[in-house]
Amino acid sequence: MNIAGQNEACLRLPENLTVRAIIPVREDMLTFIDAHETATIELADEVQVDISFIQIIEAARVYASTAGKQITLAQPASGALLETLRRSGFLEGMSDDDAKFWLHQGKIQ
C-alpha cells in the first residue's frame, strides 16, 4: 500500500483479484477509503480479475459516494480488466460517469 498523503492516497492491490482472493481485498479497500478523502486504486500489471472484482469496485463507488469521498482508478481499464468488463456486459450501455471512472473517458469510444 502506497500512501501519498493524508487526504489523497493510492492503494495498490495484489495481482490476484478473483473470487478466490477477494475477501481480504474488501477489508483493505474499506479501511483505505475510510482513511482518505480521495482513494486511488492501482492495479498490478499482470492482474487477474473476474466479476467479483468489478462488483467490489462498484460497491466501493457506492460506499465512497455515500460517504462523500472520491475513488478513482490510477490507470484506465486495460488488458484483463477491460476484457472482463467487456465479457461481463459492463461496457454496453455504460453511462458517462461509468466510462469516466473505468476508462477515464468522457464517452465510450
Partner: peptide, 9 residues
C-alpha cells in the same frame, strides 16, 4: 450491488 460495507464479496 450494495455498498462496500454491506457487501459479502
Amino acid at each position: 450491488i450494495p455498498s462496500l460495507d454491506e457487501l459479502v464479496p
